[in-house]
Design a protein around this nucleic acid. Structure first.
Lengths: 154, 154
DNA sequence: ACTATTCCGACTTTTCTTATCAACAATGTC
DNA sequence: GACATTGTTGATAAGAAAAGTCGGAATAGT
């Protein structure tokens, strides 16, 4: 339960764009399909754009699209952007591990590092082409789905 | 960074007890060796006791000791006790996964489950006998270490 | 001009974490 | 039985982080 809702939203938004297959989507459309509150999504898209994962066009006919091929965007990249370090605990981060405060350095660290490493490995080898393909069957007729619009999404 | 400080403390406290090799430790001693604030440690020990991981004796000469052999206490058990579900996201918990709110169920779930599963596997195969042994060399002369006592640990 | 959209930053609300404290209960010592 | 030492429990508070809202500015098409 360590993926924040914001990170969850971000990955879903990118997935929605990957499924749009190069076409651009308006922020409002993304919000609808992914069930992300519109106002919150703005923040997220802005951050994705700042990181170069997404690019945008303004004005009517504007919207968002991916800035790279889906296969070149790993889940690791998106998660790391919103989540920060992927280690389960601060003494086990790759970059600047906090020193263990115990009287002697504790042996738990090695296990936390193990968890960190397999996590990173999985997220690195998962890209959005794979995710889109996996979702393809379920999502393909999305244009045809009824569009119930909850109030908060307007 | 998803292991809360409380969980961190709990695992360190259990490790300290595993290293005590059957002898009982006073709460104050545990606090010293692990650098856990005494007042907070109370809560944690109480919870460990409630879960049957630790047993206690009161009065002078009281203290805590492990309720099982260290090799029978997995890291998974302690972490799960304090941390709750180990899935990175609520739609991927084993017990009662929250339904995916997207228009179509999203393909990210499978990756989150993958992360969950390897995490659980690592934590399950790590027990406190292993951890104690691993720490053994570092901790063995702990009785001889100088005892700087920070104010907040009294 | 008008409208639909993105862009940006400040703000609020809620929830969780991390403790701290005080009163109480049990046990051993004198 | 008085007293010191330890564990037990529950209330609560301070702070940080997460989640979401809002208003208005910039941009582009019609």
């Amino acid at each position: 339960m360590w993926i924040s809702r914001k990170t969850d939203y971000a990955t879903r938004a990118v997935l929605a764009l990957a499924l749009a297959d190069g076409r651009s989507l308006k922020s409002h459309e993304i919000a609808l399909r992914t069930r992300i509150p519109s106002s919150f999504l703005e923040q997220i898209m802005s951050q994705l754009r700042g990181a170069g994962i997404v690019r945008s066009e303004r004005g009517p006919a504007g919207g968002y699209r991916l800035n790279h091929a889906p296969k070149d965007i790993t889940l690791e990249r998106v998660v790391r952007l919103f989540q920060g370090p992927l280690a389960p605990i601060s003494c086990a981060t790759r970059s600047e591990p906090e020193p263990c405060p115990m009287e002697v350095e504790c042996s738990l660290k090695e296990t936390w590092e193990e968890v960190r490493d397999v996590t990173i490995k999985i997220l690195e080898r998962t890209n959005f082409a794979t995710l889109a393909k996996r979702a393809g069957g379920r999502w393909v007729d999305v244009e045809l789905l009824p569009r119930r619009v909850p109030a908060s999404f307007n």
